[in-house]
């Protein structure tokens, strides 16, 4: 049974806000997720990231695998055309349904996403 979470959100407020939300299909999308600006999808970035990891996950003295990886570098690996890695499982966004999330490699979003996976999880995914 649901418990009271102490949040009282009035029906009137929701009705008013619903009007705004229902206008989303008529509004050009502009948000924290930047669509089409660089013309590649999250899946592509994930693939690029996986390629970087393949290079970086070799035995090394360096315990911080991402210390030197920049978002630009990830994109360069992808852009080089050397990568063909299935990495849908890499990110939680893509597992329930196969929708794509486009991100800007110049923003911090990729770094933030990386924080979700520890080195062992990444290694297990890639091996």
């Amino acid at each position: 049974m649901k418990k009271n979470d102490g949040l009282n959100i009035s029906e009137q407020f929701l009705l008013e806000n619903a009007k705004k939300l229902k206008g989303i299909p008529d509004t050009p999308v502009k948000g924290r997720v930047i669509p089409l600006r660089l013309g590649f999808t999250f899946g592509a970035v994930a693939a690029a990231l996986a390629a970087v990891l393949v290079f970086r996950l070799q035995p090394s003295e360096n315990t911080d695998l991402f210390a030197d990886v920049t978002s630009e570098e990830v994109y360069q690996y992808y852009d080089s055309g050397l990568i063909d890695v299935e990495t849908d499982l890499l990110m939680e966004y893509t597992s329930v349904d196969d929708f794509t999330v486009e991100i800007d490699p110049n923003e911090e979003e990729l770094d933030l996403l990386l924080d979700d996976l520890n080195d062992e999880e990444l290694y297990n995914i890639l091996n």
């Binding site: 806000n17 939300l21 989303i24 948000g31 997720v33 669509p35 329930v96 349904d97 196969d98 999330v101």
Partner: peptide, 24 residues
């Protein structure tokens, strides 16, 4: 919340019913 519904709208057509709508 607005960003969430923007994402829902953008990806609506690709929803395949692998879960309940509420779960998604």
């Amino acid at each position: 919340l607005q960003d969430t519904f923007i994402k829902i709208w953008k990806n609506l057509a690709s929803f395949k019913g692998g879960s309940k709508w509420s779960t998604w």
